[in-house]
């Protein structure tokens, strides 16, 4: 059960916040966005943090999920849940098809290819205006209902996103701590050694790429029904970069780090609004400073500091006799 202690803590925080502050803007509005971002960051972290495959186009799969569900519900009158499923199916197909050629690439070439893929899909969203509504976006998307319970308030959406995040975190933790998860971390460490241990690295990369895309697509499905209006801007290159930043900022290869990074990067612009014209500049500066001084990420960096402090206290208590 020690394995899931962190998850319990996260669940407690998610549950307690809206009970303490039910009408707080930062909880029910910013909070929902933070939870959504956290889902996306956790999914990207599986691919990037654990399997070591950088993706600068993750927002595209978020977009495919959102647009498929939005188009099917508004234009063809589908049930939202069925539409989200259809979005998952389409995302699964697209990500599976591109995964093989793309994941053969390494390093900067992989970064460029995923970036290109994201931009191509975004351009399709902008240009395919008969279906997607083009740059003006697509409105009138119905909200979801769960067991006859319409998600029609911010607070209800908060619960929905919170539950989804906890589910996704649970999923991610399970995977990392398993045969498949070790295979992913192994191919990050040394691809050739992983192969020699009998791991089909091509299949493992495809698996995690598709899985990460599916989670992003699910997030997209939820997002479009929560917003009731979407436009291509929510799924562009900048958002992909923002997702990468969340993962790196929290600390690569740490699921809670990804959640933490998502929270910081969602809150930061909200807090910087007071600086008005200086907002963009300060945001850039903070990003740079954090990465320069805590290159292993905020969450992991702080975690290490705490661990070191605890160790020192323990060795002091036992009258350290050396290693």
């Amino acid at each position: 059960m020690r394995r899931l202690a962190g998850l319990c803590l996260l669940a407690t925080i998610v549950v307690v916040l809206p009970i303490l502050f039910p009408d707080n803007y930062y909880v029910t509005v910013v909070g929902v966005t933070a939870l959504l971002h956290a889902i996306l960051a956790v999914s990207l972290n599986l691919l990037m943090g654990y399997a070591g495959q950088i993706s600068l186009g993750h927002a595209a799969f978020f977009g495919i999920g959102a647009y498929t569900s939005a188009i099917l519900t508004t234009r063809y009158g589908w049930d939202p849940w069925a539409a989200i499923m259809a979005g998952l199916a389409l995302t699964g197909l697209v990500s599976f098809l591109v995964s093989r050629p793309i994941l053969r690439l390494k390093g900067h070439y992989l970064a460029m290819a995923t970036l290109g893929l994201g931009i191509i899909i975004n351009i399709i969203l902008v240009q395919g205006d008969q279906l997607t509504g083009g740059p003006d976006g697509l409105g009138g998307i119905p909200t979801l209902s769960l067991f006859g319970w319409a998600l029609d308030t911010d607070l209800r959406w908060y619960w929905m996103m919170g539950a989804t995040l906890l589910g996704v975190v649970w999923l991610a933790l399970n995977i990392i701590d398993s045969r498949s998860g070790r295979a992913l971390r192994a191919l990050h460490g040394s691809e050739v050694a992983a192969e020699m241990m009998g791991i089909n690295t091509t299949a493992a990369k495809t698996g995690v790429f598709v899985l990460a895309a599916l989670i992003a697509s699910l997030a997209g499905g939820l997002f479009c029904h929560q917003q009731s209006f979407i436009s291509p801007d929510s799924f562009n290159f900048f958002f992909s970069i923002e997702l990468v930043t969340m993962v790196v900022l929290g600390g690569m290869a740490s699921t809670y780090g990804a959640v933490f990074g998502a929270l910081i990067l969602t809150l930061l612009p909200e807090l910087l609004v007071v600086f008005e014209d200086f907002e963009v500049m300060i945001f850039g500066a903070i990003l740079m400073l954090m990465m320069i001084f805590l290159p292993q990420g905020l969450f992991v960096g702080l975690q290490n500091l705490v661990l070191r402090w605890l160790n020192r206290r323990r060795s002091a208590a036992f009258g350290a006799v050396g290693e």
């Binding site: 963009v280 500049m281 850039g284």
Partner: peptide, 12 residues
């Protein structure tokens, strides 16, 4: 990320 931060800063 550092250079992306720098580009955002310069744009800012």
């Amino acid at each position: 990320i550092i250079t992306i931060g720098a580009s955002i800063f310069l744009r800012g």
